[in-house]
Design a binder for these strands. Structure first.
Lengths: 238, 238
DNA sequence: CGTCTAATTGAGATGTGTCAAGCGGTGTGG
DNA sequence: CCACACCGCTTGACACATCTCAATTAGACG
């Protein structure tokens, strides 16, 4: 009995360390460092639809997804919602907020979710005494910033169809060619309304890029290569 | 003669250190550390309109503005230009790009500009051996990310007038109530066309928020308080 | 005084948001 | 097992914000 319990515990610990190793900012750490930060980790469950934290709350924990999908989103001044990111296993949830007073987006569970939680102080002191991690955090944040600027210029200057193409490409590179999203969720991600998202998607269906599955809340990308080309093209050469 | 030269040199050095101290990521360093990084610095001039670097080039230098204005911008897939940021004394130019292969925006001198330049390798090795700076870089980058997300949701979900208000407020908090910008530059910053920018500005003029100066390329904010209120308002309480 | 560029204004085209209605699948309770 | 309600999806008509194109005016500068 005791033996079985111990084995169970070991399994949970190794699974926990696996998640930590998948997390970008811990990826290249030696095993003993992984175990060190692992000491401070607790595992928590959230059920589908619940909020893990809200925009503006004090950022007192680092969350890393162990299992499930989490939507990172926010609400505009006029009350419209927008999705910034959809996170999966190994992703931190607004990790940079730990270096800020408060979370600056909300995290909502899109499925039942299990996360690892590390207290703010434990995390910060670990970062402070582990320069490698600090450097890695800078790298990851810089890349994030880069891709957000790319997205921003799309929102400023491109039409919905172009944005849709790029969003689909982004999602496909993370989740593969079958996406479990409702049209509304997609619209929030692209920055448009449900209706327009639908209209654009049916245009793309005619062009043979996506094929609508019969099932609800599912999007299938049928021609990834074409999607890729259309997304990249269109720099008018001067 | 030698004496005068030496005094001149000392002046330049203390001026250089002053700029470094104004730079967010070096702000809290002890004087000897400032002097240490100062050793690796060279001062360079760029004339108005010239490109300091372009999007996509290898990021081989950290630039810090000593004097003048620099526009950080980029071009969308369909060839439209957008301004992300207008930088002044003490600001780094796309500093996070140093942790990435390439610059991810272009830097163009809006006036004659003098910058301090630090080689990539010198900067990175300084960061690596000075954990305080690394932490400070994380903080600064996290704040940047936060404000870019705020801007992004504006672009996704708000109309031009709302975006204009927020841009004016941002600019005013940095440059005061008199801005030296053409309508076109303003439009690029707000993410619209010159014509719409003009129309929106004349609406704001009627509301008494801005007052157009007779001179070209100048914008005067006459009622900062009102601007502030209008920008913050409009969260519909549920 | 003439030239050049920025600023302005107008008219028309168009992309997208809004509102309203209908369809189809899914789950629930009678 | 069927009827019903519910929710996501789809479509159409219309309104409206913004873009585009074109023409005019106003300042700055030599």
């Amino acid at each position: 009995m005791l033996d079985r319990q111990r084995r169970h515990l070991e399994l949970r610990e190794s699974e926990r360390d696996n998640v930590l190793r998948q997390c970008l900012i811990f990826k290249n750490l030696p095993p003993e460092k992984i175990r060190e930060i692992g000491q401070h980790v607790k595992s928590i469950w959230f059920k589908k639809g619940s909020l893990i934290f809200s925009n503006g709350e004090p950022s007192d924990s680092l969350y890393i997804i162990q299992e499930g999908l989490v939507k990172l989103c926010n609400t505009s001044a006029s009350g419209k919602s927008a999705t910034f990111h959809i996170s999966t296993r190994g992703d931190t949830l607004n990790g940079s907020a730990l270096f800020t007073e408060t979370y600056f987006m909300s995290a909502q569970a899109m499925s039942n979710v299990s996360v690892l939680r590390i207290g703010r102080d434990e995390f910060l002191s670990f970062v402070t005494k582990t320069p490698d991690v600090a450097i890695e955090i800078i790298r990851v944040t810089a890349r994030r910033l880069k891709s957000e600027y790319e997205r921003m210029i799309d929102f400023q200057r491109e039409e919905v169809e172009q944005r849709m193409l790029r969003c689909l490409l982004t999602l496909a590179s993370k989740f593969g060619t079958t996406l479990s999203l409702t049209r509304e969720e997609l619209a929030d991600f692209v920055g448009t309304t449900t209706e327009t998202a639908i209209r654009v998607m049916s245009r793309l269906k005619k062009k043979g890029i996506v094929s609508c599955s019969a099932r609800k809340g599912e999007i299938v990308i049928s021609d990834l290569a074409k999607l890729d080309i259309l997304t990249r093209q269109s720099y008018p050469i001067l």
